[in-house]
Design a protein around this nucleic acid. Structure first.
Lengths: 118, 118
DNA sequence: TACATACTGAACCATATAGTTCAGTATGTA
DNA sequence: TACATACTGAACTATATGGTTCAGTATGTA
């Protein structure tokens, strides 16, 4: 029984910040896959794909197992619970802010000043 | 070949992959803040804080407005909707995979009556 | 006017990322 | 045995990140 220390959100959000890696998760949702099949699907070298998979593994989002010469990748049981919780909690924060302020009016008013330098 | 392109999620997940930036969002949930006050709170140079805020701005998570010499930062009205949707959709994917595993197991149990053995 | 405050931009540094190629090793198959 | 397949690791490239310092500019205040 392997006990994973819940990897920090740093690692999982960083893993999710790449479209290829989100695609890999998508793909693994349709079925387990070898490094080679993923590399084919995403038009990338084996070595490049292996690196992506390692990033996902480090984040705990994917687990892999090598049988014979094939390393099979599948979604990790850890899932996206911690990430969903952070997002949901802070979504509420965003919404609470907008209820507190009269956003639309302040938005319409602000045309006069700087907006955003640089 | 599968080509996944969604730059907004790239930017926002990357923005969220840093604990300081998640902290800034947390802080802005409690009230708008200047660059200086954020730099103080997170024990960082002004320049360093400005960079973090720019990352959050590029991702659309924060908006800023300069009035006089003070740049005020607040949560962007775009919120975390797209991120929440991606996470939730894929959380279901993770769960579906594990249910699918159960299905495969039960299919294997009744395999004797079905099709040709391979 | 003089001075402090708040930010801005350029430049630098160390490390990480996303990818590659090339040279292996290990495994399966004819 | 010979050959193909599947991965692995090192090394290299280019760019991004997270931080700094230093030298400004713009703005508010006494």
């Amino acid at each position: 029984m392997v006990q994973y220390v819940s990897p920090p959100l740093d690692l999982s959000f960083a893993a999710l910040s790449d479209a290829t890696r989100r695609g890999i998760i998508d793909q693994l949702g349709r079925g387990d896959a070898s490094i080679t099949s993923l590399a084919d699907k995403f038009q990338m070298t084996l070595t490049g794909m292996k690196k992506h998979v390692q990033v996902l593994e480090r984040a705990g989002l994917v687990v892999t197992q090598k049988v014979g010469r094939v390393r099979t990748c599948k979604l990790g049981k850890r899932g996206l619970k911690a990430e969903a919780e952070w997002i949901e909690a802070h979504r509420k924060l965003f919404e609470a802010r907008f209820e507190a302020l009269d956003e639309i009016i302040s938005e319409m008013k602000q045309e006069g000043s700087d907006e955003s330098a640089s």
